[in-house]
Amino acid sequence: MSVPLSHILIVASLMFAMGLGCVIAWRANVIMMLIGIEIMLNAVMLTFVGGSAHWGIADGQLFSLMLMALTSAEVSLALAMVVYLHRRKQTVNTDRFDSMKG
């Protein structure tokens, strides 16, 4: 495939910027913040796979596999946390979670 590596990096960084914007703009909604984190992690995975294909070493693909495992663990914990928070206050609005217990 004759696409320069820089174009892949451009796509990945634009996607990362979008994810960052999502986290910051939707900071009142926990679920949309998690979606923004997903977008950022996928951009990083694209960078890893692009580098791996460019240099012909499998390590980048391997790291994206590790990243997938990390993301599935993170998402399962974070969504369990969302369910727990929703059970406590009946909302996912972060502005409502402003007090610590204990």
Binding site: M1, N42, M45, V49, G50, S52, Q61, S64, L65, M68
Partner: peptide, 15 residues
Amino acid sequence: LLGAPLIAAFEVIIY
């Protein structure tokens, strides 16, 4: 397209 069929499959299945 980047030559990572395994990661592509995992992306579809897991993500």
